[in-house]
Amino acid sequence: MIRNRLKRRAVAGEKLIGAWVFSGAPAVCELYALAGYDIVLIDTEHTPIDIADVLTCVRAVEAGGGEAMVRVPGQDSSHFKRMLDAGIHSLMVPMVDTVDQAKAVIDACLYPPRGRRGYAASVSRSGLYGFDETYADTAHEETFLALQVESAACAAIAGDIAALAGADCLFIGANDLAGSLGKLGQLTAPDVLASIDQAANATKTAGKVLGTIPIPGRDASHLAAQGYGIVIGECDMWAVRTGALADLAQHRKAFPGRKR
C-alpha cells in the first residue's frame, strides 16, 4: 500500500514546490492543496498549533488532493511518535547540528530493527487503526524525514548526515544558518552563500533530496535549476499581510482610517 506519494516523487527526482502554513487554518491548507502546491507544510515549531489541530490540517490537505508535511517543534522523540502515529508520514526536523542528533531522529522514527519507534499501529491512524496489518513491516518505506541544516557547523558535515540511511532530505534553513554566522537577515553575504552551497553540494553528492526556501537572488525556479528537489516559499501569513497592505495602500486616500 503506497501511503507517501511525496516521498516517492521526491526520491524519484521530481521538483516539488510547497507552501508554509503558520495559521493552522484547515481551509488554507485545503486551498493550497487545491491550488496545486505539491507540498503543504504545517509548521509547529514557530506556532502554537497542537497535534489535534495538525491532524485536522493534514486531513484538509488530503481532501484537497495534496501532500502534507509537518515541521515538528524539536527533536524530542515524543514529537515524532505522536505525529507518526497520527498517520503523518513526512516530517521536517529543525536544528539538526550533528551526526549523532541525526541518528537519534532517525532512530526514533523507525520501528525495530531499524530504530526504536514505539508500536501502536494496531490502534492508531498510522496503521489505519489496525486495518493495515502490514504497516509495521513497511513503515520505513513510507516515512520521509527532512533534516534541517540551520548552522554553519551542520553545513560543514552535511555530507556525513546525508549519508545516513533514513536521512531522506536535507533542508537548508537559510535564515538560521546566516544567524549562526552572526549575519541574521544577511542572506546574500558571501560567507552565508558559501555555507549554503557547501551543504547543498554535499547533499547532492550523497544522492539525497535537497530542499530550501527562496532567498534574494535565488527564487524557486532558480533553485530548481540548481538541483533543489523541494522548495517551500509561499507562506499564508505573509500572503495575507501582503494582500492586506496592498489593498489598504490602494484605497487609503478614500478611507483615511486609523493610525497603526
Score class of each variant (00 low, 15 high):
G130K: 07
T138A: 10
P48I: 09
G227C: 06
E150F: 00
V209N: 02
G179Q: 01
G159I: 00
V149E: 00
G217C: 13
L110S: 09
H222E: 10
V240E: 04
G182K: 00
Q186A: 11
M92C: 06
A249W: 03
T205E: 08
L170V: 01
V105E: 07
P112G: 12
V149A: 03
G36N: 04
T143E: 11
V54A: 13
F80L: 05
R71A: 09
V61M: 11
G243I: 03
G74P: 01
V105M: 10
D107V: 06
A155C: 12
G65I: 05
D53N: 15
V58A: 14
T143K: 11
N175P: 00
M95H: 14
K15H: 10
E62W: 14
D85V: 05
D107Y: 13
V58L: 13
S195H: 07
G115N: 05
D53F: 04
Y111M: 11
A33T: 11
F80N: 04
E150M: 02
Q148M: 14
M95C: 12
A35T: 07
H140A: 15
R218H: 14
I157K: 02
E141Q: 15
G207W: 03
A156W: 00
D197Y: 00
C169G: 01
G115D: 05
S122I: 07
A202I: 00
S221T: 14
H251P: 01
T188I: 06
E141K: 15
G130H: 05
A146D: 01
I17H: 14
L210D: 01
Q198Y: 00
G13D: 11
S221Y: 10
R59N: 15
D107W: 09
D85A: 10
A224C: 15
L84G: 02
G173R: 01
D43M: 11
A12H: 13
S180T: 01
V231N: 02
D236G: 05
E67A: 14
G233T: 12
T212E: 02
L84D: 02
H79A: 07
